[in-house]
Amino acid sequence: MLHIGCHLSTSRGFMGMGRDALSIGANTFQFFTRNPRGGKAKDIDPADLEEFLALARTNGFGKLLAHAPYTLNPCSADAKTRNFALETMQDDLARMERLPGNLYNFHPGSHVGQGVEAGIGMIVEQLNTVLTPELTTTVLLETMAGKGSEVGRTFEEVRRILDGVVLQEKMGVCLDTCHVHDAGYDLVNDLDGVLEQFDRVVGLDRLRAIHLNDSMNPCGAGKDRHARIGHGHLGLEAITRIINHPALRHLPFLLETPNELPGYAEEIALLRGLYRA
């Protein structure tokens, strides 16, 4: 079964997001844990959450993917920014236990001139602080495009973060197709080779979700500009191979393309038609 969805607004609550997902043919979705630029998270309505969980069970929803705010940077040179990242992630993971067994994704961060080694060390330190044996949520490192001083632009950097985490069973990876393409991995002409490299360096068993995005820029541009499915440099043929690849087809696919709900509905219908059941 193809589990596919898109990024939905939390302003309508969980039940509202569930209804929106069903209205566009989705059976999973991604949501921000709070305003993407930071700030206090909205209180969870227990009745709304219970109603949504029943809806999700009835309709066979796949794993949900919560996304940390973009301002979360655990490897910032600024101590206040690092402390914000720590407190935010701790709060987010506590809230995610209201949705047990799902996924929480974050951008590893930018080292802002301190160097990759220092950045990785800070990310590992935060993860070892927030992860606990009781946690049912899997925390995902997102693969990055390589703009500025981003950490996680190579599979090797992702692996070095994972290697430093004590509770490794609580960790996974979210592969963003636009980011990986922009970072220089040739998904168009060598999908098998890229996945073999990922497996050798990180391990395909670590891969828990796919951000399915086309790219406005050519391979290796390091830009991170998402395009609609089939309207970018990845193209529809490559994306069709991605959703049907034996190593990927079982994963949840989340669209982050520049769309409103009608556009997402069109993309989801297109991809469902291209998926080989």
Rank of each mutant, 00 (worst) to 15 (best):
Y185K: 04
I243F: 11
D214V: 07
K40T: 14
A66K: 01
G18E: 09
C6T: 14
T257Q: 04
R241D: 03
A77P: 00
R37K: 15
T143K: 02
C219A: 04
G18W: 06
R272E: 09
C178G: 02
R37S: 12
D182C: 14
R98I: 02
H107Y: 01
Q126M: 15
D205Y: 11
L127T: 09
D78I: 10
H3C: 10
R276L: 13
E50A: 14
P258Y: 07
A79W: 00
G62Q: 05
D48W: 13
Y264G: 08
D163G: 05
G119D: 05
G62T: 03
I268P: 06
N217H: 15
L53C: 04
G148F: 04
H231Q: 15
V180P: 02
V188K: 11
V201G: 11
E256G: 10
T137L: 12
P36L: 13
D224I: 00
N105T: 13
K147M: 05
M144S: 09
H233G: 00
L195T: 06
I123L: 05
L191K: 02
L167A: 13
H250T: 02
Q126T: 12
A265K: 14
A183I: 02
T257C: 06
L140H: 01
A66H: 06
P69T: 04
A77V: 14
I120D: 09
L191F: 11
L261W: 10
D20S: 15
T10G: 14
L140S: 11
P108A: 10
R200V: 00
E117Y: 06
T33D: 07
H226F: 01
S76K: 03
G148Y: 02
G193M: 09
R153K: 15
M171E: 07
T71E: 06
P218Q: 06
Q126A: 06
Y185E: 08
H211A: 01
